[in-house]
Design a protein around this nucleic acid. Structure first.
Lengths: 110, 110
DNA sequence: TTTATTTATCGCAATATTACGATATTTTAA
DNA sequence: TTAAAATATCGTAATATTGCGATAAATAAA
């Protein structure tokens, strides 16, 4: 088949999976690192930092925006992108919960 | 083309992306939630919790294992899976770093 | 208004992912 | 040894993702 089954998972699970998916590519990690590093929002500079064509970068940015990982603001002829902090918090909350549960487990195996 | 370019990213970026990719599916999030919730390692129970065929679940587990997100131990005729805590820590470290950098930014936009 | 600059979108090709059923493999139990 | 139970692997089909060049769209500058 090839299409992910989505109808049998709860909202939160789907949301977390979508966030992970939006970051599941080295170019997107590199984009996040750039956006986090620089004090001002990055626009065209992102393209020059990546080994990809402009259209490909634009595509990645769109996917990340759709998932709510970044936000884009048109600034004249440029578009400025920033990280959406809420999405980072949501991912951290998920991992924190998992981590806490793991600490409370008494190691029966592994 | 379709194949991700990997040769132009540094090791850490590739590693983080691979970890995110290993979790970029609702079934895998559900698997992690199960493994975190239960005190003992889960084996066949995982299949019954998911709306997928046994072979499909096995495939997901293999992918997660290859990325180092879980570890599997053969236990007689069953296989027991646990979360690899190191991978969770690595993801948290990445997000923590991003989060810290964001807090230190003076909001020029967004 | 025309031109340059920047980003987005379209169309396409190549590859990867997702999913399933069938079957192989492994270990335990009879 | 044979049968069962549990997982893994294989083969295959459908869909998604990745990437590029070409081109459209939008704004700024001349």
């Amino acid at each position: 088949m090839g299409a992910t089954k989505t109808e049998d998972y709860n909202e939160k699970t789907l949301r977390v999976a979508a966030l992970f998916q939006a970051l599941a590519h080295p170019a997107r990690i590199a984009i996040i690192e750039q956006l986090a590093k620089s004090d001002t929002c990055q626009c065209g500079e992102l393209v020059s930092e990546l080994p990809l064509a402009q259209s490909t970068v634009s595509q990645h940015l769109k996917a990340m925006g759709n998932a709510g990982v970044i936000t884009g603001t048109v600034e004249g002829t440029a578009t400025c992108y920033c990280i959406d902090r809420k999405s980072i918090r949501q991912l951290m909350a998920f991992l924190d919960k998992v981590s806490g549960q793991l600490e409370r487990q008494d190691q029966k195996c592994c």
